[in-house]
Design a protein around this nucleic acid. Structure first.
Length: 120
DNA sequence: CAGTTGACCGACG
DNA sequence: GCGTCGGCCAACT
């Protein structure tokens, strides 16, 4: 098969591009689906390499705490603003409800967690 | 080739 | 709930 895994980076970007509006994914999740469980830092590194010059919805990628990890970078407020525009609500502490907003691809090899909407 | 760094994560106090 | 420590893996110097 035509060099499928020649880029952990490309794979992460592909996943980010598939995130629907109003939904978010965590770095660890991206790394997990990209085939590198534990490489959450690398997932973040990939997004940093984009430097917001890409058309990808990088704003929909947040950390496992449900909080944007870009505050230290200086454009955290921007990311929250973009997400709010998509319907994402942030807590007073700057946290959003991951249990409700975290999105999983349909063909995830790990299978989407049973979580969420079941109780609704 | 070895050390350092990083848009992280989970555990511990 | 918050701060700190260690672990994780790949890229950068």
């Amino acid at each position: 098969m035509t060099a499928p895994e020649s880029g952990f980076r490309d794979r992460v970007l592909a996943l980010v591009a598939r995130i629907p509006a109003g939904r978010v994914m965590t770095y660890g999740q991206l790394a997990l689906l990209a085939g590198q469980p534990g490489a959450a830092r690398q997932a973040g590194f990939v997004l940093n390499s984009l430097m917001n010059g890409s058309a990808l919805p990088w704003q929909r990628v947040i950390n496992a705490q449900g909080r944007v990890s870009t505050h230290k970078l200086g454009f955290g407020a921007l990311q929250e603003g973009l997400l709010r525009a998509e319907g994402v609500t942030f807590d007073d502490s700057g946290r959003c409800d991951l249990a409700r907003l975290q999105w999983w691809p349909e063909d995830s090899p790990h299978g989407p967690p049973p979580t969420l909407l079941d109780q609704a």
